[in-house]
Lab assay of single mutants.
Amino acid sequence: KSSGQLMAEWGLDDVDYLFSEEDYHTLTNYKAFSQFLRPLIAKKNPKIPMSKMMTVLGAKWREFSANNP
């Protein structure tokens, strides 16, 4: 499932962030990516359980990696 599908299924607000060329150069591993995106997700979904946060971050990382030029 996509991150958007997961968040909709769980009734969470998705984070629409348009990644720049620079993001693809600086966010080169999962740790850097999650440190960048986790606060954005948490801000829109302050009560998100950690298990769902990790699942969403994993899905967003897969999508980000697939779109990386």
Rank of each mutant, 00 (worst) to 15 (best):
T28M: 11
F19E: 03
S2A: 08
Y24F: 11
W10N: 12
S2T: 12
Y30C: 02
E22G: 10
E21I: 07
D16P: 09
G11Y: 10
V15Y: 04
L12I: 15
K31T: 10
M50T: 14
G11V: 03
K1G: 04
T26L: 13
F33K: 00
Q35T: 11
S20F: 03
K43A: 10
F64S: 01
W10G: 02
Y17V: 07
Q5H: 12
Y30L: 09
V56I: 12
N45T: 01
L57R: 00
A8K: 15
Y30T: 02
D14F: 01
L57I: 14
S34T: 15
S2G: 06
E9Q: 13
S2M: 11
E9D: 14
K47S: 08
D16G: 06
D13G: 09
Q5L: 10
P49S: 15
A8M: 14
L27A: 01
L6P: 05
Y24P: 00
S3F: 10
S20A: 10
N67T: 15
M7S: 00
N29S: 10
V15R: 00
T55S: 08
F33S: 02
V15L: 09
V15G: 03
E21R: 09
S3D: 03
D16H: 09
S51P: 03
K44D: 03
D14Q: 03
G4Q: 15
P39H: 01
E9Y: 12
L18G: 08
D23M: 04
L12E: 02
Y17F: 04
F33A: 00
T28S: 12
S34K: 12
H25F: 12
T28W: 03
K31D: 13
A42S: 04
W10M: 12
H25N: 12
A66R: 11
K44L: 12
L18W: 09
A8T: 14
T28Y: 07
G4P: 08
R62G: 13
A32Q: 13
Y30S: 04
G4V: 13
S2E: 04
S3G: 04
K44Q: 11
W10E: 08
D13A: 15
G11F: 07
E22L: 07
T28C: 10
N68D: 09
Y30W: 10
G11N: 09
K31V: 09
D13S: 15
L6Y: 07
M54I: 11
P69S: 10
D23I: 05
T28I: 06
S20W: 01
M7N: 04
L57F: 01
A32P: 00
D23L: 02
A8D: 14
F19V: 04
D13C: 15
S3A: 07
N45S: 00
F19K: 01
E21D: 12
M54V: 14
P69A: 07
Y24K: 09
S2P: 02
K1D: 06
G11P: 01
T26G: 10
M7A: 06
L18F: 10
Q5I: 10
F64H: 01
H25S: 13
Y24S: 05
S20G: 13
L57A: 05
A32K: 14
Y24G: 04
I41V: 06
Y24A: 05
K47N: 06
Y17S: 03
G4S: 14
D14L: 02
Q5V: 08
S51F: 05
Q5T: 13
K1L: 04
V15C: 05
D14T: 01
P46L: 03
F19S: 03
L6W: 07
P39L: 01
M50D: 13
W61G: 01
K1I: 05
S3I: 06
W10I: 07
D23S: 10
K31F: 10
Y30E: 10
K52E: 13
L27W: 00
L18N: 15
M54D: 06
Q35F: 02
L57H: 00
A66L: 15
F36K: 14
M50R: 11
E9P: 03
E22V: 07
S2Y: 07
A32F: 04
L27C: 06
V15T: 11
A32C: 09
S2D: 10
A59S: 14
T55L: 12
Q35E: 09
E21V: 07
M7T: 03
A66G: 12
A8S: 14
L27P: 00
E21C: 02
Y24C: 09
E9R: 10
Q5K: 12
E9G: 08
A8P: 05
F19W: 12
L18P: 09
L57C: 10
Q5P: 01
K31M: 09
M7Y: 01
W10D: 12
K1V: 05
A32W: 02
L18T: 10
D13F: 13
A8W: 09
Q5G: 05
G11Q: 09
A8G: 09
A8C: 10
Y24I: 07
Q35R: 12
K44A: 13
D14M: 00
T26R: 12
N45Y: 06
S3T: 09
A66Y: 10
Q35I: 09
M53L: 04
E22I: 08
G11A: 06
E21F: 06
K52R: 13
E9C: 06
D23C: 03
A8Y: 12
S3R: 02
K31S: 11
I48R: 01
L12P: 05
V15W: 03
Q5E: 11
A42G: 04
S3W: 04
K52C: 02
S20Q: 12
M7F: 06
Y17Q: 02
F19R: 01
E9L: 13
L27Q: 00
I41L: 15
D14S: 02
V15F: 08
L12G: 03
E9H: 10
I48A: 05
L27T: 01
S2K: 07
L18E: 11
K1A: 01
L12K: 00
Y24V: 08
L27E: 01
V15S: 06
E22P: 07
E9A: 11
A59R: 06
L6M: 13
L37V: 14
L37C: 02
L12F: 14
Q5F: 04
W10V: 06
G11M: 05
K1P: 02
Y24Q: 08
Y30V: 05
F33M: 00
G11C: 09
Q35G: 10
A8E: 14
V15H: 05
Q35Y: 10
A32T: 14
G4R: 14
H25A: 15
G4W: 13
L12N: 05
S34L: 05
V15E: 07
L57D: 01
Y30F: 10
K47F: 14
H25I: 13
E9V: 07
F19G: 03
D16K: 04
H25K: 15
E9W: 03
S2Q: 07
G4E: 14
N45W: 02
Y30N: 02
L18S: 12
D16V: 04
E21T: 07
M7L: 12
K31C: 09
F19M: 05
D13R: 14
E22Y: 11
L27F: 11
A32L: 13
L12M: 14
A32G: 06
L6D: 05
P39E: 11
Q5R: 08
S2R: 07
Y17T: 03
N45I: 01
G4Y: 15
L18Q: 15
L6T: 04
A32Y: 08
N67S: 12
T28A: 09
K44R: 09
R38V: 01
Y24T: 06
M7D: 02
D16S: 05
G11R: 08
D23E: 11
T26A: 06
S3V: 05
S20L: 07
H25T: 14
R62D: 08
S3P: 02
D16W: 00
L12Q: 03
K44G: 14
S20H: 05
F33G: 00
A66F: 09
L40I: 15
N67E: 11
R38G: 10
E22K: 13
K1T: 07
G4N: 15
R38L: 15
Q35H: 06
Y17H: 10
H25P: 04
E9S: 11
D16C: 02
T28F: 07
M54L: 15
G11K: 10
E22N: 08
E21Q: 09
T28H: 11
Q35S: 10
K1N: 08
K1S: 05
Y24D: 03
K31P: 10
L57N: 04
D23R: 00
S20D: 12
F33Q: 03
T55A: 13
V56A: 15
E22A: 12
K47H: 11
M53D: 05
F33W: 01
K43V: 04
L12T: 03
E21M: 09
T28G: 09
A32H: 07
E21W: 07
D14G: 03
Y17R: 04
D14V: 00
S51T: 10
L40W: 12
A42K: 15
Q35L: 12
K31Y: 08
F33H: 00
A8F: 12
G4K: 14
A32R: 11
D13P: 05
T28Q: 09
L27N: 00
Y17N: 07
P39C: 04
L6R: 05
N45F: 01
H25C: 13
